[in-house]
Nucleic acid binder design. Structure first.
Length: 586
RNA sequence: GGAGCCGUAGUGUAGAGGUUAACAUGUCGGCCUGUCAAGCCGAAGAUCGCGGGUUCAAGUCCCGUCGGCUCCGCCA
């Protein structure tokens, strides 16, 4: 390579007019006018127009006739102001251009299988198969830059606050509870396996026992579960743990840290402290533990008003221990029958047996169910839902969890359909006071809602009434997406033993799976707690993307495969033999 | 494990039982000295994802299968 780069494209400006430069990069576009050739040259930092004129250099011009999109070139030339009338206001470098005196072809390139532009509509599998081309697109490159800046901001902040970044093992021990593990066979120990970490949870707690006091890690986590737009089998957490702290310390740290990250990442001021809501309030009013507070349509409980209702659907649900709740879809009385039927179908898909509705009109309430509802009940409903002419009231009657899921889903659908969501809003909320345990009907035992190391709010009452015990746990929700969660941990060996017993683990299982942790806790474990953030999700929201795949350089498809490398794949028979593994698939 | 949507030149789409599968863009060739979504002229480019079925006839209808996406279950 004869030509050596002197500047990146971003560094060029009108003040450099007349200066010689050498630029390197890729041919973004080429416009051949016969006697004059324009090439938009792209490097990581930007685009600039290069002009090839045979009167300046015939050899450079003739070579420029043969270059094509995505060829890799080096150009020597002079920065010039563009002639009057040819300024391109759409380009940061639009006032200038580079008059080429020398062109070096560094590499040719096949024509890309899709356009390397923003806002392309192309099959995602093609983008993933040629991810190196996809990442050349400005919007994807911006996402990678954002990701870098945010992670750097988080690291700077935590460093300033006295945190140590410590790495924990990727090859570790499988533990019961939680997600399905990815397993790695051990060659040295035939028949035994490592597990990839679902999170560094136990290691970070042991680092607290080790006296680290303030730990963090940008940690890769692995969970072998089905994928979603916001779930990948491997993902990145910002994992944090602190000793001698309580919930308020974690929340303050989080709020300050995210204020900095949003400022550094996307130049946005966010309002702190974040509002807080209990889990019970979130479930009751929003039907989910990750409420999207960018819009209203709050769910209202009507159970007390309808206990004696003539309408069997309501009365039966209440008498069997359920609830009746409703949403006032304001201004939706004019919805067509088909639109309402779509909502009913959604409700049924979400597990409801039906979705009752009342249209509020100037002439009064209209509904197939109206004849079963007494005037007093109607008044009560109208008053609680603040119903006005033009509103549509949607009712669901069932067990509480079903009603929450159904109306929570209906609420989100209405929010989208009625365009109530401000896409620029950043609506944070802490969700607190989670239940500690939930009953698993299949396994006939309690399972930890958060994880088995979470401290109960009242250890005294844990055994007396485990089902109603609250956890010292907190989730952070942004625009209806859970972006972080954590808890104050159990640091007493005896309490941790009780927890494991409640979860139905035998003493042998506990000793086998968690013995090392319990042993560590006998050597002076400090009170501690922490939080972990889903960095992919956080950055996805900052970048206003709908999928974390757009902020991960090399993500996997919904079937957990990589179209570029074709992982996962079969391996040679000898490899399996060496690992003492035999597959049962043909 | 389940539900829904999608699969047609390189790419994005049209084609809803009947002639030679159409349009845009890209690609290739020619012309062109101020374009920037350059323009003009010309050319090439399709296993209609795959397999089976119905029919005189299937890109089109049916069944299966593979792949992708969204969602439910699952995700301490």
């Amino acid at each position: 390579m004869a030509l050596k780069r002197t500047h990146t494209i971003q560094e060029l400006n009108p003040g450099m007019a007349g200066h010689p430069v050498v630029l390197t990069g890729w041919v973004n576009t080429r416009r051949d006018h016969g006697g004059l050739i324009f090439v938009d040259l792209r490097d990581r930092s930007g685009l600039v127009q290069v002009v090839f004129n045979p009167e300046i250099s015939r050899p450079a011009f003739e070579l420029a006739e043969r270059i094509r999109n995505e060829y890799v070139i080096a150009v020597a030339g002079t920065v010039r102001m563009r002639p009057e009338g040819t300024v391109n206001p759409n380009l940061p470098t639009g006032e200038i251009e580079v008059y080429a005196s020398e062109l070096e072809l560094l590499n040719t390139a096949k024509t890309p299988p899709f356009y390397l532009e923003d806002n392309i509509q192309v099959d995602e599998i093609l983008r993933l198969r040629y991810r190196y081309l996809d990442l050349r697109r400005q919007e994807m490159k911006n996402n990678m830059v954002l990701r870098h800046r945010v992670i750097k901001s988080l690291r700077n902040f935590l460093d300033e606050r006295g945190f140590l970044e410590i790495e924990t093992p990727i090859l570790t021990k499988s533990s019961p509870e939680g997600a399905r593990d990815y397993l790695v066979p051990s060659r040295i120990h035939p028949g035994e396996f490592y597990a990839l970490p679902q999170s560094p949870q136990i290691f970070k707690q042991i680092l607290m026992v080790a006296g680290i006091e303030k730990y963090y890690q940008v940690a890769r986590c692995f969970r072998d579960e089905d994928l979603r737009a916001d779930r990948q089998p491997e993902f990145t957490q910002l994992d944090i743990e602190m000793s001698f702290i309580d919930e308020e310390d974690i929340m303050e740290l989080t709020e300050s840290m995210l204020a900095r990250a949003f400022a550094d990442g996307i130049g946005r001021q966010i309002s702190v402290p974040f509002p807080r809501m209990t889990y019970d309030e979130a479930m009751k009013f929003y039907g989910t533990d990750k409420p999207d507070l960018r819009f209203g349509l709050v769910i209202q409980d009507l159970t007390d008003l309808l206990r004696e209702s003539e309408f069997k659907v309501f009365a039966t649900a209440i008498n069997s221990g359920g609830v009746v709740r409703a949403i006032n879809a304001q201004g939706c009385a004019s919805m067509s029958r088909k639109e309402i039927d779509d909502l009913v179908k959604l409700a049924i898909d979400l597990g409801a047996r039906g979705l009752a509705w009342i249209q509020v009109t100037d002439e009064g309430m209209k509904s197939p169910i109206i004849k079963f509802i007494s005037p007093e009940e109607l008044d009560g409903i109208a008053s609680r839902l603040e119903a006005k002419p033009g509103d549509l009231l949607l009712f669901c009657a069932d067990f509480e969890d079903t009603v929450a899921r159904v109306l929570g889903g209906i609420r989100l659908e209405l929010g989208r359909r009625l365009q109530l969501i401000d896409e620029d809003a950043l609506s944070f909320v802490w969700v607190t006071d989670f239940p500690l345990l939930e009953w698993d009907e299949e396994e006939k035992r309690y399972i930890a809602v958060h994880h088995p190391f979470t401290s109960p709010q009242d250890p005294e009452q844990l055994e007396a009434a485990p089902q109603s015990a609250k956890a010292r746990a907190y989730d952070l929700v942004l625009n209806g997406t859970e972006i972080g969660g954590g808890s104050i941990r159990i640091h007493s060996r005896t309490l941790q033993d009780k927890m494991f017993a409640l979860l139905g683990l035998t003493a042998e299982e506990v000793a086998d799976k968690f013995g090392y942790m319990l042993e560590a806790f006998e050597y002076g474990a400090p009170p501690h707690g922490g939080i972990a953030f889903g960095l992919d999700r956080l950055i996805m929201l900052m970048a206003k993307r709908d999928s974390i795949r757009d902020v991960i350089a090399f993500p996997k498809t919904q079937s957990a495969s990589c179209p570029m490398t074709h992982a996962p794949s079969t391996v040679r028979e000898e490899q399996l033999k060496e690992l003492n593994i035999k597959t049962i698939i043909k």
